[in-house]
Design a protein around this nucleic acid. Sequence first.
DNA 1: GTCCGTGCAAAAGCTTTGCAGCCTT
DNA 2: AAGGCTGCAAAGCTTTTGCACGGAC
Lengths: 135, 135
Amino acid sequence: MNQEHSVKQYRSSRQRERLLALLRSTNTHPTASWLYDRLKTEFPNLSLGTVYRNLSILIEQGLVKKIDAGSTFDRFEAKTTPHDHLICKKCGKIIDFEQRFFPEINDEISRSVDFYIESHRIDFFGTCSDCRTIQ
Amino acid sequence: MNQEHSVKQYRSSRQRERLLALLRSTNTHPTASWLYDRLKTEFPNLSLGTVYRNLSILIEQGLVKKIDAGSTFDRFEAKTTPHDHLICKKCGKIIDFEQRFFPEINDEISRSVDFYIESHRIDFFGTCSDCRTIQ
DNA sequence: GTCCGTGCAAAAGCTTTGCAGCCTT
DNA sequence: AAGGCTGCAAAGCTTTTGCACGGAC
């Protein structure tokens, strides 16, 4: 057993299965509360605590990522392929942006500074097309 | 008067002056609470609300930026020159990283997608040298 | 004299956690 | 049968806000 990276064993649960499925079915980068509301129709007694606990397990398993979009609340995504985000400062919408710059950037910088880099995030802030047309 | 970007007038206050000076004197990317504790020696009756209110004014004035480092609390910096961040996942330390990739990246992408980009952030996550030696 | 900034305290908002019972293994 | 997972509720933490007073202009 590797003490540092011992992988915790989890039992399966319908709530967590459906939570992951729900996250995978959308590209809207939901909040915990949105996920809760949606799942509530399927699990009438669902609690928000369960949503948070399962999100945290899925994150630990690497199946879900937390997105810091500068709001007071977190957003989540189940997309595993590397991509960047366009974040609208007016409506908060997050759009995935496939074109990824510098896929090799992590190693490159790790070599140049005394810091071991595992990952990076690139977020662009501005105004989405919807918010520009409304103006 | 430009309605969209009308600049609000603020009176000066010693608390805000000293807050900005404190932020400018450090490269540690402090939390609101750290700033509060430090300023408290100078203003014994200082309140945390005042710190938050002034931080928000300084941010509006473009003198301070909020940093989302993936914690439950925000960090702040008064550095105005463009730079990226190295964020240690173990101790939470944030290190400024001068080498900036793609200074022209905003315009470049704005032209390729239907999204007007004003700014971007690039954050690298990993382990700092201190945390690696301790291991 | 105005009215913005402050201190104080309470509230707000998102997230975490303790506990008893249920479900997976 | 053991122990993780759930629902419920309470607590936790950071940040925001209402109010009356004091200070900037």
